Simulated assay, not measured.
Amino acid sequence: MIRAEGLHIALGGRAVLRGVDLQIEAGWTAIVGPNGAGKSTLLRALAGLLSPQQGSVHLQGREMREWTAPQRARYLAWMAQQGETSGELSVRETVELGRIAHLGLGGVPGAQCRAVVEQAMQRCECSDWSARRLNELSGGERQRVLLARALATEAPLLLLDEPTTHLDAPHQVALARLFRQLAREGRGVVSVLHDLGLALQADQLIVIEAGRVRAAGHPADPALQRALEAVFGQAIRVQPGACGRPQVHLNLENVDGD
Rank of each mutant, 00 (worst) to 15 (best):
G36Q: 00
K39H: 05
K39E: 03
S40V: 00
L43S: 01
R44G: 03
A45C: 12
A45N: 07
L46N: 04
L46V: 11
L46D: 04
A47E: 02
L50E: 09
S51Q: 14
P52L: 07
P52D: 05
Q53G: 12
Q54M: 09
Q54P: 07
Q54D: 12
Q54N: 09
G55N: 09
S56W: 11
H58C: 14
H58M: 13
H58E: 15
L59Q: 09
L59H: 10
Q60N: 15
G61K: 11
E63V: 15
E63A: 15
E63I: 15
M64G: 07
M64K: 09
E66S: 15
E66P: 11
W67V: 10
W67S: 12
W67M: 11
T68N: 08
T68H: 07
A69R: 14
P70N: 09
Q71A: 14
R72A: 10
L76A: 08
A77V: 02
W78H: 01
A80P: 02
Q81V: 03
E84I: 13
S86R: 14
G87H: 04
G87R: 02
E88D: 12
E88K: 08
E88H: 09
L89C: 06
L89P: 04
R92K: 13
R92A: 04
T94S: 02
T94C: 01
T94Y: 00
V95Q: 00
E96A: 15
R99W: 01
R99V: 01
R99E: 00
A101E: 06
A101K: 07
H102S: 07
L103M: 12
L103D: 05
L103S: 03
G104A: 11
L105T: 14
L105R: 13
L105F: 10
G106Y: 13
V108W: 11
P109Y: 07
P109S: 09
A111R: 13
Q112C: 12
C113V: 15
C113F: 10
C113T: 15
R114Q: 14
R114E: 13
A115L: 12
A115R: 10
V116T: 12
V116I: 15
V117N: 03
E118D: 13
M121E: 06
M121V: 02
M121F: 02
C124E: 04
C124Q: 02
C126P: 04
S130F: 07
R133K: 13
R133Y: 11
E136T: 11
E136D: 08
S138H: 06
G140D: 04
E141I: 05
R142N: 05
Q143P: 09
R144T: 04
R144C: 04
V145I: 05
L147V: 01
A148D: 06
R149Y: 03
L151Y: 00
L151R: 00
T153C: 09
T153H: 09
P156V: 06
L157V: 15
L157G: 06
L158C: 05
L158N: 01
L160I: 08
L160Q: 03
E162F: 00
E162Y: 01
H166C: 08
L167I: 07
L167A: 03
D168L: 10
A169Y: 09
